[in-house]
Design a protein around this nucleic acid. Structure first.
Lengths: 207, 207
DNA sequence: GTTTGTGAATAGTTTCACAGCA
DNA sequence: TGCTGTGAAACTATTCACAAAC
């Protein structure tokens, strides 16, 4: 079923499947059924098959999926088959943790630049990246950086967003607790850590 | 429309509305319309009204919503009207950033205990919290701690989850890139930072 | 005139069940 | 026999449009 609009929810799940396939591949597992993959990732097997069906035939009936083929396909669909250079803004506690974060690598992300407005942080090395002043953000264009991570306090978020957009960034991962306005061509994904914790008590039985 | 099952998506959005109401309240704004709130938060006004309608009448036609009433109502619905004590497991880069994170406070969360398996970290103070050995996790019950945050590498995630569940925790915020198995009574919310970044390139126009 | 609250219409997503292939 | 791929059905959520309330 190749000629369909891809549901957003399917796109959201593809990185999960990729993570599972990479995990299995690292362990030397060559093939996997939708059922096995589902068990590993905590989703349903028919959901996996349905999601894959939007893109064509990934697997072999009676056998399952080849892990390396799966990785190749999902990487291509998600545009992850080239290394993506990322700029980080905000070298505070969260920003430093993100610079040291080992999880970006498997998807081909590399944080190649870091910025902060605090003069005391500027010039210092942080996980191998030298922190630059925020006014140097405009140089991003010349370095092939198309994505930015915002790890600044809420009050600064819109200003930093504008600077990133002006610097040519087309995708933003926003860790600040604010809605930020961008032109339609720019995609923002917001992770509001406290907000996710905030809905947890709703699900706890009385207490 | 009081006698309806609440959509999960509505529950997911309630903390957003709460954040907006708190923001306005701090600025001394007493009343707000669904339209104004929507503009502030980047959602639709009818979505807000629809979401609120599941819980009863929050506002006044022709006038709007009273910010402090809104805060009170949402806090009660989300079970946020008491302080929640939280245990953090994993005092590495991410764990330390979470201990120092200022955003939990507005929702009434307090990280009162931290644990790590690394003997070099145990005993040290980290943002005012003394890191304890992981084997001391079982004391949680006696301290009224009902929620846990997992900030450990993937390989350790299931073990830590089991320990938290055994210690009586009923809600878990999981930052590890793994699906973890829990009894049905326990709710897990997973934030996989790299995964969220991983779907960003999909939305970037060719390049 | 303004804004809420909500039934009804639309859109989107998940689940099922099974034909077809290895 | 075992597993994929997918239409169709069931379910869930979003959007609209407007009556009722202030």
């Amino acid at each position: 079923m190749r000629y369909h609009k891809i549901p957003d929810e399917t796109v959201r799940r593809l990185p999960i499947y990729l993570r599972g396939a990479l995990h299995l591949s690292q362990q030397g597992v060559k093939g996997v059924s939708s059922q096995k993959l589902a068990g590993l990732l905590g989703v349903n097997s028919w959901q996996i098959r349905k999601d894959f069906s939007y893109f064509g035939d990934f697997g072999t009936p009676g056998v399952g999926y080849d892990t390396s083929t799966l990785i190749k396909h999902i990487n291509r669909i998600l545009n992850l088959d080239t290394v993506h250079k990322v700029a980080l803004v905000g070298a505070g506690n969260l920003g430093s943790a993100l610079l040291a974060f080992p999880g970006f690598e498997i998807y081909g992300f590399e944080i190649v630049a870091a910025f902060d407005s605090d003069k005391r942080k500027v010039g210092k090395k942080n996980s191998g990246v030298t922190v630059k002043d925020i006014s140097d953000l405009c140089v991003l264009k010349d370095h092939g950086i198309s994505m930015g991570i915002i790890a600044v306090p809420g009050d600064a978020a819109q200003d930093i967003t504008d600077r990133l957009v002006n610097a040519g960034v087309r995708g933003i991962l926003n860790f600040s607790p604010r809605y930020v306005v961008v032109p339609k061509r720019v995609k923002v994904i917001t992770i509001d850590i406290a907000m996710d914790l905030a809905r947890l008590p709703y699900y706890l039985p009385a207490g």
